[in-house]
Amino acid sequence: MTTQTPLTDAKSSDFQVNLSGRYKIDTIFAIATWSAIAISILVLVTLLLSVLIEGFPRLSWSFLTNFPSRKPEEAGLLSALAGTIWMMVTITAIAFPLGVGAGIYLEEFAKDSWLGRVIEININNLAGVPSIIYGLLGLQVFVRFMEPLTGGRSIISGALTLALLILPIIIVSTRESLRAIPDSLRQAGFALGATEWQVISRQVLPIAFPGILTGTILALSRAIGETAPLITIGALTFISFLPENLQSPFTVLPIQVYNWVSRPQQEFHVNSAAGIIVLMVVLLMMNGTAVLLRNKFQKQRG
């Protein structure tokens, strides 16, 4: 057993491993990563606390049931709350069938087809478009172009704009829910002589439904918190009445909050903090529903 090495042969003594120094940097690095988490949480807590401390005392029944007013102490959220609920229903009515239908088409009918790929790339691109650009689209198409139908700066114009904004999210979550369902289930259906649609509607969709619903609610909560596209289509007006139909002018919670924040008077800032609390509670309820659905769904599958 002779050792022949023509070239230099590194020996253990050629290494200065310096473990203590390396471990010191390791510790600093680990602390830095934990600090990043801590800072994020701290900021969230600060944000929530600053809003709560400022706005909580202002919350009252009359705050929810009063119309906006030039006097801060009389101003309330009624029209904004009503507008948000109108928007919620209208956006769902538009975006849910469109998004789920498109998701089913892309995942079940047009998988790997030419058209499917084009639409997929397109959806990825849409996800990167700033929301205010959707506002510009809505302003031109729904407010101006289709004014005779939509009534201009109305609930339906706003709902259509936001529906387009969240459509990609619903499509993607629908596709993911459908993808999670094993192919064996579909094949079992085909083997019994069912058409594609019979298999989808009777076997696949019922199982995928909770997942689709979760994705839709999350998308909807995104829409409910949006402000910029609605300002762009001109929804920021003084609304002291309740919407009567889809062509009514409207305001929503985030816009009312924006309105109050941008006033110089401190009293309106208090109102805006209280408005934020209401908005966050609405969003929390929606997200909570989504999480509950998701957990239930996962338990069923597990």
Partner: peptide, 15 residues
């Protein structure tokens, strides 16, 4: 590199 090799790195790689 990470273990603090003090020799010629090029030679070590070739070797």
């Amino acid at each position: 590199r990470i273990n603090g090799y003090t020799g010629d790195l090029d030679e070590l790689v070739e070797d």
